[in-house]
Amino acid sequence: MMDYIIGHINYWLIIAVMMVGMFTLMSRTNMIKKLAGLSIFQTAVILFYVSLGKVEDGTAPIVAEGFSTYSNPLPQVLMLTAIVVGVATTAVGFALVIRIKEAYNTIEEDEIRELDAKS
């Protein structure tokens, strides 16, 4: 039982971060806050993947003499590119927020919905 908890507590805490991120994304009406929630969710997923690649007593996947156990390079490669692509797409989201502010003069989702209903 103790072994099970020690082996899985990392995943549980990462899932807790994911839940907070998802709740931020869905419950807040401010668009910048929503994007921050989305980024938190995304980082939690990335963290989950990288922790899948961890190997006990391993070292960073750079081949050197005197080491034989390395952590798994594949999740690291996938997540490294995902981080950079993630910031680029989040920036597109921010650009949309700026355009929405110009069009509606607000970045609160509720007010935008009201304005849309009126017109």
């Binding site: 990288v50 961890k54 391993g58 070292t59 996947p61 952590s71 690291q76 490294l80 981080i83």
Partner: peptide, 8 residues
């Protein structure tokens, strides 16, 4: 860093 992923 703790998870042995310095590149990330």
């Amino acid at each position: 860093v703790v998870l042995d992923a310095p590149d990330v």
